[in-house]
Design a protein around this nucleic acid. Structure first.
Lengths: 360, 360
DNA sequence: CAATTATGCTCTATCGGTTGAGCATCGCAA
DNA sequence: TTGCGATGCTCAACCGATAGAGCATAATTG
């Protein structure tokens, strides 16, 4: 393309191209959006239009295009944070999947702020999104209502709602597995059969509720009773976790951590213990983090299967708006610590070792 | 608002509201966009319009609005990945800052793929962005040309370019500091004055070039010569790092890691060493990761100052399009390992301990 | 009381692309 | 030579919001 002179006052439009090529704006439009075959434009004219567009660095004005069309092909997502691997992966995969479907993804981050969530949703509605994905929303039903009022379909991701189809991880089974792994490690490494401590989240949060249920059931299956004081749910923040851990039951040896964010606080707390005391502890955490997985007393992480979550999401999106209001549960992946192989030997593989499912 | 019946065929427009309230679309529009005072609409009518909008769940059609206006108030950003703390924080803070300025941010992730970068930039141009931020772009000048051809201003973030203002971290000074920290630790803990190993990145990458320069200068200032084989730049991927580390110079005790992504590979490799051998190593890394910071032999991380980077970015954005094509360097923050306090004592604070600059 | 100003609103064109309808021209068969 | 479909393109309306111009009516001034 010719390098813009930097002060090219106006952007190139189909009217400019029409004048340059010597044809009508309609012909230009149909060539550029691919409907020219149907509209019986000659190959010759199409070629001329395309090369003129190239030469002039033409970029479609989506605003005008969407304004006229019935579907925008824009799909929106609200997401709480970008600061952990789970949500980061969700955002990346969602963008990838949307593009593969010929859709344009717009993601916006709501900082776990309920007001910002609604504001962000309204913002995306302004973009005429065909569909809005509410990921980890504190009040998915409110979002769903707002969208319904505008005739826009919604899907809930990560946290379920009652007014739209939901795609979530099977937190219960994941928690059951993780609890068993930690209990096994405590018995094997430390000879302890004491109940674990559950830390992080809030009881009004669906995932926390399910994970707590799995945690308790795993104990029950072994006939281990869990005192109420062993379940600590002060939210997700690391500082909160550190604070409540100061009052942790003395005999506890194993910790079930509800999220990697909370895990930060747990690890900080553990590093403040005398080394011998810290060495006599084991923990496992929900959500996967590559560095978190490498920390000394970590005996397992439950990774949410992001590619499958997104695949389920895309499948539901194609059914919209007639999709049933149901909940799809996607199994989690249990990641066990990599067995450190003898030096120089090929790295020994076990289920879910740290290199699976990583960067594509 | 009245709960949508789910089949509300069309979205509410200003024409609907005008009919409901019994006034003109112009009046409705001016009330909703705030220009009603200037247009001498009465408070009474404004109130009626606002409550009708509320009741009908009205959401502005940005497409139509932007189409008519001269400025879109949309700012775009392309970013390579969401999978580490640095880019995650950049995305979050950028959204926050843009909203605070009354702008609408649209971020799109390019997977470090040069073609996708251009495609994504073109996509954002379609949205009539007023300004496009190219963050960590492999070819910022290409993006800048594309934008110039459309009369859109660009700013480079993280990696500099020659055709637009650039905001980057002061990699050289950060690398100098980090190298000194690692050298000190090797001497103090291991009694070693051997040159460090530099790992990660590519020499055609500006940040890598600057960090390598700081790395070499820190050695030179101590009169330590660095053999060429100590500088390993096989890209950023963890597997690449692991592969080249197999051929690491035998006498090396300290490693300068160019990014947290590369650090993943370094730590995996180190865990494959016999424990005694691993214990006799120290490393430090560019970019901060809360879990990475807590790993045993980590003696320091250099955190890029995201809030300051974004502040500088916003400052430049307000100068556009007349901003000079210059490079703004923002100092990095050196994060040293937290001194583990005696059990029960209040946590001892040193420069850049893990809780500074974290979640707001 | 006429002239002026202020108040409160409406009309109309417009942004750029899309879509259905329409209009020439050409080739070919009857 | 007329008729008819196929080919290749253009016209005009429209999507929803906005901005400038305009036009009543009410309030104020000389």
């Amino acid at each position: 393309m010719t390098a813009g002179d930097g002060i090219s006052s106006r952007r190139t439009t189909i009217y400019d191209l029409a004048r340059i090529v010597g044809t009508s704006p309609t012909a230009v439009s149909s060539v550029l959006n691919g409907s020219w075959k149907k509209r019986r434009i000659s190959q010759k004219l199409a070629d001329r239009v395309l090369s003129a567009a190239e030469e002039n660095g033409y970029a479609l004005n989506i605003q005008a295009s969407v304004l006229r069309r019935e579907k925008s092909n824009i799909v929106g997502m609200i997401i709480p944070k970008y600061d952990n691997r789970f949500f980061g992966a969700i955002a990346e995969r969602f963008e990838e999947a949307a593009r593969a479907e010929g859709l344009f993804p717009v993601i916006t981050c709501t900082q776990r702020d309920p007001d910002l969530e609604v504001e962000a949703a309204r913002g995306l509605l302004s973009y005429q999104v065909d569909c809005l994905v509410a990921c980890g929303a504190t009040n998915p039903d409110h979002i769903a209502e707002l969208c319904a009022a505008n005739g826009v379909a919604t899907i809930n991701l990560d946290l379920p709602g009652g007014r739209a189809p939901s795609i979530i991880s099977d937190s219960y089974s994941g928690a059951l597995d993780l609890t068993n792994v930690i209990l096994d490690a405590c018995e094997r490494d430390l000879g302890s059969r004491a109940p674990l401590v559950f830390i992080g989240g809030r009881l009004d949060d669906h995932n926390t509720k399910e994970r707590r249920r799995g945690f308790l059931d795993a104990h029950a299956a072994r006939g281990i009773e869990v005192p109420e004081g062993n379940v600590l749910m002060p939210g997700y923040a690391p500082e909160k976790a550190r604070a409540v851990l100061e009052r942790m039951p003395a005999q506890a040896r194993g910790i079930f951590v509800n999220s990697t964010i909370t895990l930060e606080g747990v690890v900080q707390w553990m590093q403040s213990l005398p080394p011998a005391e810290a060495a006599a502890m084991r923990y496992g955490s929900f959500d996967y983090d590559p560095f978190g997985a490498l920390l000394p007393q970590n005996v397992g992480m439950v990774e949410q299967d992001v590619p499958s979550l997104i695949a389920a999401l895309v499948a539901r999106m194609s059914d919209l708006p007639n999709a049933p209001i149901d909940v799809t549960k996607v199994p989690c992946i249990l990641r066990l610590p990599q067995i450190t192989p003898p030096h120089g030997a090929p790295s020994h593989s076990n289920r879910g070792m740290p290199n699976d499912h990583m960067r594509s």
